[in-house]
């Protein structure tokens, strides 16, 4: 899909985005660590001291949910505004616009990598050993990235034409935080609603990632419903990607007129 030239461009954009984000701040890159940790501390105090959810290894459980959610929220909202932020360049030079979106996702991914390093540190501190199922995590991450890139393409294209999208997305992210199993486990959701609840691919990916990294549970391939679960997740992610990509392709050549 991409030539060497475009890949190089994505890299340069991501690096400059990452640098710009922390330019002139005293703590610099540390902010990308402090943000999830502060969120972790707050939510931990609320949901284990004030309201006890009684979950095994709750800090770790919560931390993984938060960093995956933050990756999603950061990648999608920064992609959405990235085209507008590069309006100057897009109006004057012609180049592949998708590189801008992919660079924003890549920049958010760099933050995720730092956070994952912190997560591993926490695992060590809480003396939880990794089982072989941790090897499944990269696979879930790939699903997640496909999903995120698809959403980002759709959002950024629509945002250029309809500025209302920015506000709508802000509200959806707020709602999404609560209808995704971040502070509570999937098992707390009643069976009656779970079918609908699992239409949210984030719920699937976060739950699967926790099983793989924290609880050492792999999907049982002998069980039909487990296989179905995997395939449906993949299909949802790919459909969203195709949907996003097509919207983006259709609108991207008109960007400079709407900017």
């Amino acid at each position: 899909m991409f030539k060497k030239k475009e890949l190089r461009l994505i890299k340069e954009f991501a690096i400059s985005d990452f640098k710009l984000k922390y330019k002139r701040s005293v703590l610099g890159y540390f902010w990308s660590l402090i943000k999830p940790l502060l969120m972790l501390a707050t939510l931990y105090i609320v949901f284990s001291v004030f309201i006890n959810l009684e979950i095994q290894n709750y800090p770790i459980f919560l931390l993984l949910g938060i960093i995956l959610w933050n990756f999603f929220a950061e990648a999608t909202s920064s992609s959405m505004s990235s085209v507008l932020a590069k309006a100057n360049l897009i109006k004057k030079v012609s180049f592949s616009k998708s590189t801008v979106i992919l660079a924003s996702c890549l920049s958010a991914f760099l933050t995720l990598l730092i956070n994952i390093a912190v997560f591993i540190l926490f695992m060590v501190i809480f003396k939880i050993s990794f089982s072989w199922t941790a090897l499944l995590f990269p696979f879930y991450l790939i699903e997640f990235i496909i999903f995120i890139v698809g959403i980002s393409f759709a959002l950024s294209a629509l945002h250029i034409k309809y500025r209302d999208i920015a506000h709508i997305w802000e509200i959806l992210l707020q709602i999404g935080f609560w209808i995704t199993p971040i502070i509570y486990p999937l098992t707390k959701v009643s069976f009656v609603y779970r079918k609908w609840y699992l239409l949210n691919p984030l719920a699937r990916i976060i739950d699967d990632s926790r099983n793989a990294l924290i609880y050492g549970i792999a999907p049982n391939l002998a069980d039909f419903s487990a296989v179905k679960h995997i395939f449906i997740t993949i299909i949802i992610c790919i459909l969203i990607f195709i949907f996003g990509w097509r919207i983006f392709k259709k609108m991207s050549h008109r960007f400079s007129e709407y900017l």
Binding site: S16, L89, K92
Partner: peptide, 29 residues
């Protein structure tokens, strides 16, 4: 094609001259 339209190339004001030139020339391939 190298365009030079409306007195600029879409430089980012927060970045230095070198960073901007690097990014611009990357865009130009």
């Amino acid at each position: 094609v190298v365009p030079f339209l409306e007195l600029g190339l879409g430089f980012n004001p927060e970045m230095t001259a070198k960073e901007n030139v690097l990014l611009y020339l990357s865009v130009m391939g």
